[in-house]
Nucleic acid binder design. Structure first.
Lengths: 209, 209, 209, 209
DNA sequence: TATGAATGAGGCTTCATTCAT
DNA sequence: GATGAATGAAGCCTCATTCAT
């Protein structure tokens, strides 16, 4: 009895204003502390409608996540990575893309943190199993590609490398957000370069250590 | 009129069981989502007693933080860093220490995240100003020492480097915790080496990039 | 975002039973000591509903006051006072009216005391500024009219005369209430005469003293 | 098991500081809203001691009332009233006395209000029956004396006249308190004259109305 | 005699969720 | 399809009171 079919039939504007209101609230306060009442008020949607479109708070949360997954649609990007033979160059392209989308959907990274927090809290739960798995597999595949190309270290568990990337990404993210460092395309490229440099420092295979 | 004197007079067992119950709850759920009722239930104290020992939820939170600050007492460790001339070696000593304490107080790093989240949410508030300043100054001084020794990069803001270190530390922390990787002293040393390696990769000055 | 529109849409019976329950509780115990739980229990509404209709305890209190203000609607009465040239006669008409309303809403004068107490306790607050100002201005204008007509003394501060009137009014009020002295119209008129006599004794200009 | 014997054995300073702290709190907030914790804190007395000296909050309240009754010790004053043949003149002497004591014990009238409020709320209770009866009898006897002298009206119930006097007294009291009108002996006499005038207006027998 | 630690009922308020319409 | 009124559990906190010492 998933509500998504009902939600998808909605007018696009209405749909997006709901997703945006929810995304911002979840992003700011995390899942548990987000107030459904606030979301409803900001989205201009009725209480009944909310429970007509969504099973419950968690379902709304998941819908926002799914929406972001589709927008970012990293699959394509990743699939292409490494095919040019310039692994780190491709990563930079990905990073630039990521920062640009960030400017369009400011609550995206906040949501990412919220999801991580949620899965941590509800470890028994399987609601995000699929979603997390996708994200995780994506990253894992990505790293394994780098390893096959001989660029990425293999002395640490791949999962750990993934978590390190996520953490570093979030730090740079918040940093640029709080210092409003992404106003121009030049800045985006500069910070993308910084991010790639950090990825490289963390991931690359080194003989000397 | 602070309640801590009253709390400090408590039997040590009782005191620690309260701190532990609170620490675990705050660690898992963060300040806002932590439930006082849960803490009370687990600690086996009455509601009234809680407010006899502490002014309010925030005071309990701060008491847990203070307690950890005392236990970790990093000041001494950091002060010694870099004086041997072997900057990275000293860091390793610090990392070993940190991991060892982690095994004793598993909720410590969760508390760290909770404090970071709290200060982010209550930016105007000054309650943790001193605590945060200590931590931040410590890290900043630590990095600047490395820069003076010519070991640490200076192309990124020092504050950003600090946040990167914290983030990476937390990731390794959780990783070792969840994978129960710190059962023996050998493991602790191995993981400390990994942490130091990551710090080095992120921080060290490199000409080639 | 005031909840009153929601409250006003309620069925009249339900609305009045809520106002009555609240009015009686506030009247008996004053604002601070009134128990919301008691009000809820007597009114037969749920806790959630209360906070659906009203922002908080104070909003409920204010709603009761507003309701009374509308019912008494003294403005018209006072405006007419003194225009007939028979100042004391007009006052009697007003007093009769007041007593009649009292029989319908027994908690009215208790509410009056509660409001006075509230404003005294929350002197900085402006919530009742308008309400109090209306009442005060009304009384002040009323007394000044009498002074212009040469009927009312001017050797004491007008504000003090107002407070004396209020106090005397409340005493007679409680007295008639507790002695159930207002069962017939004759009694109402008799007590109104007593009230006017007291007003006259206190207010009238006398040369001999 | 009344605690008063125990309390009376206390050092006078200690006893009075307790009574003063309690008097001020009860005076400001009334019986129910007064915080025992506040009283204890201000009086510098321990919690246990409080319940050693007094049965409970109500007993403390009663003790303060009793103390005031003794200090004011109106009996003597009243007994003397009317014996000089100058009824209203004697009242003035009483009023002057009353105002002077007011300056010494500022919480006295607040306590009076608190007691009135208390008896109103706990009508079934008999705790203040004796105290109230004393006060009431005093006033009743006082008025009846005036009636015997042919000075005081007898067209209203004596009890009602008493309540009117109390109310008017309280109004002038608060007025002088809030306007700090009692700094000099001249002011005390002037306001006493005003109070007597009001008593006279309310009480005196008049043929013309 | 005297202490202060400990209690638990009750205070106001917020919240996700349900259901009659 | 859609609404918003209504619910009650849970949130944090204060209080008068008790009791072991």
């Amino acid at each position: 009895m998933s509500p998504r079919p009902r939600f998808l039939k909605l007018d696009k504007n209405r749909r997006e204003s709901i997703l945006e209101a929810a995304g911002e609230e979840f992003s700011k306060f995390g899942f548990e502390n987000a107030s459904l009442n606030q979301i409803i008020k900001r989205a201009g949607i009725s209480k009944g409608a909310t429970y007509y479109y969504f099973d419950d708070k968690q379902d709304l949360f998941m819908t926002v996540v799914d929406h972001l997954m589709q927008v970012f649609n990293k699959e394509d990007v990743i699939e292409a990575l490494g095919e040019s033979g310039d692994f780190w160059g491709d990563i930079e392209a990905y990073a630039v893309n990521s920062f640009k989308l960030m400017r369009k959907i400011p609550y995206a990274k906040g949501m990412m943190r919220a999801v991580l927090e949620f899965t941590r809290r509800h470890e028994g739960s399987i609601v995000f199993e699929k979603t997390m798995e996708i994200g995780r597999n994506l990253s894992v595949k990505f790293i394994e590609r780098g390893q096959r190309l001989g660029e990425v270290r293999d002395d640490l568990p791949t999962e750990l490398l993934v978590e390190l990337m996520i953490a570093v990404d979030l730090v740079l993210d918040r940093w640029t957000l709080e210092n409003q460092a992404l106003d121009s395309d030049e800045e985006i490229e500069a910070w993308s370069a910084n991010l790639v440099d950090l990825f490289r420092r963390i991931l690359e295979k080194r003989e000397d250590i």
